[in-house]
Design a protein around this nucleic acid. Structure first.
Lengths: 343, 343
DNA sequence: TGCGCCATCCAAAGCGCTTTGGGGTGAGTC
DNA sequence: GACTCACCCCAAAGCGCTTTGGATGGCGCA
């Protein structure tokens, strides 16, 4: 069923039918109702491609997610982020276009998406410290929102980010208050912006108490159970093992716990662990008393927010770029306790 | 830069330029070259919407993924699947359209995607035992491939699936060979097709040795670390605890290991665990000697395959529907050993 | 020389929609 | 009764591309 057929069926012009369905005031309420009902019963749906060709709007937002070149790994946080974003898009009649691209093809992908006109706006995932994409996108001239930030960039851009520095500062402070002095940080890849900020928060808290951060107690890697395990195992085997861990992801924390228990120690009593918790659907840390003490910030909410922002930018292009900083909660779980007293 | 501009610039008609770029034989190689070079230097990219309006093909494949209504959880396997599929799409110039929809909106979503003409084909994720979507899609008449199967459906449809039954039969046999007699199954949600097949394989192996499967040693739930932990903890606290576990996901297996160690037991010595391993990027089980003995089958490969199949169906609609059954490998890890001998 | 035949190229129609720029009709006003 | 003004509605242009159905010209061949 196409517009022409529907209009013939109703003895109306295509113009009127189109206007009736799109809510224009030039058509009487009675005909509008008649048209709506006919469209409904005959299952008429305007062809998206034709519509966007006519309007110039693609009615789609693109998500470009980098394939980590090192391990060919996709960001595990992504699932929840798009679940949130998808909600918002479908509520507004937008589609979500996904491109999974290795690092070297990113620039080309962005330009193509723009040139081929397949999206009205973009979401940028997993920014690194030095992020050429921001410069590129500003040059290309297309609305976009970054999930995270790129500290090195001095150009303006819209973003949604968590207050990584503050979250890890708080977490570190909390451990310090419990008496811990040797704290290890099991962080994400060193060139990721969020990892840099988390480390900064961590070191800031230490510095405030006059503790020199030890490079030997910091690891940076992809955040998985096995990397978490490997890092923790290494730290615990050292001459002066840490009494507490800070983890950048629940997956890492699971690995850390394994390393702890493998040594016959108990998490929360012998060794404390605080992890960041993205509140992922498949990695819940939400028991009455959660397993892990955690800095929690819902990635799904971030997805909702970012999607809303990019739609806003698409619909009214000259509003100022918004930047949203989400604070995380510090959730008390079973994985922390006072530092063991020696001697 | 649009076609018209480029053609004027070259003193050629739009027809010729279009044909030159699309490889039609009616244009001389010399002009083709001239056109190609001009397109390159001026950065000409045909507008996707206009092109698909003219050709009638959307050049996009839709992925509809159900939000588990129970826990609002996205399938954690999804990330790797689309990483694989995305590779294939971009290699063929196709886009990937994503819709995350709650169960009750699924039918509407499928119909809309068809009616609005925004995709040429579909991938169906996470089929349940009784899957109305297959009937719906056959009725709608659009090429699609199911990741998994829907055993209840007697209509023909294309799918890519793992041999779940065989994998779990083998795993169970392996445990039985090691002397285990009380084996617990920590499975996925009971109405998911894959979970039903895995259970069938499990029970078949038991039956062959004359062992009556105990309902009390089977759990069905969302596959997460905490559900795995809870299930295993329950089983181990029972009057006749199992000596081995079969898990449907590494996440569950991580939880199971935690429950085991919490009781002061050691996995691989006191209690054996075999898990299915989807070979996810963020849940690697790939050490020299992997942590878990596992039935491994790459979900990313499945994504590649499914994407290839749906493109094939789009391009030549009347070929017979293909059905691909992937076998898994049984990978020996550290988590299994002979059943403990009592008395 | 004249004919036919490729090889090249082009004008224009059409994909299905939105939107511009009117046009007709009836009620209201004097 | 003529005029204005809403109010409803319509024909046609246009979005940027592909594709049909020629047109043109050069060449070989008799």
């Amino acid at each position: 069923m196409k517009l022409k057929e529907l209009s013939e069926l109703l003895n109306l012009s295509q113009t009127t039918v189109s206007r009736a369905l799109n809510g224009y005031p030039e058509v009487s309420e009675s005909t509008r109702k008649r048209v709506r009902e006919a469209a409904e019963t005959h299952g008429y749906h305007p062809n998206t491609r034709a519509r966007s060709l006519a309007t110039g709007r693609a009615m789609a937002i693109g998500h470009v997610l980098p394939l980590s070149s090192k391990h060919e790994m996709m960001n595990p946080v992504f699932t929840d982020f798009i679940a949130g974003a998808g909600e918002v898009y479908s509520a507004h009649g937008y589609d979500m276009l996904l491109s999974v691209v290795p690092d070297e093809l990113q620039e080309r992908t962005y330009r193509d998406l723009r040139n081929k006109g397949s999206v009205d706006g973009l979401i940028v995932h997993a920014p690194k410290l030095a992020e050429q994409r921001i410069h590129l996108l500003n040059e290309i001239g297309i609305p976009y929102v970054v999930h995270g930030r790129a500290s090195d960039s001095n150009e303006p851009y819209a973003w949604v980010d968590m207050n990584n520095t503050h979250a890890f500062k708080r977490a570190t402070d909390f451990l310090l208050d419990l008496g811990h002095r040797r704290i290890a940080l099991v962080n994400g890849l060193a060139d990721m912006d969020f990892a840099i900020r988390r480390r900064a928060g961590f070191e800031e808290a230490l510095a405030e108490r006059g503790i020199e951060p030890e490079a030997a107690l910091v690891s940076s890697d992809e955040m998985t159970e096995s990397t978490g395990y490997a890092a923790a195992r290494g730290f615990l085997a050292g001459p002066a093992p840490p009494t507490a861990f800070l983890a950048s992801s629940i997956l890492s924390a699971l690995g850390i716990r394994r390393a702890i228990e493998e040594r016959g120690l108990r998490m929360g009593r012998d060794i404390s662990v605080i992890t960041h918790d993205d509140d992922l659907g498949y990695l819940q840390n939400r028991a009455e008393v959660p397993v892990f003490t955690a800095t929690r910030s819902s990635v799904r909410d971030a997805g909702r927010l970012a999607a809303g922002m990019v739609l806003e930018m698409v619909q009214s292009p000259d509003t100022a770029v918004r930047q949203v900083l989400l604070e995380s909660e510090l959730i008390l779980g079973q994985s922390t306790g006072p530092a063991p007293v020696f001697g």
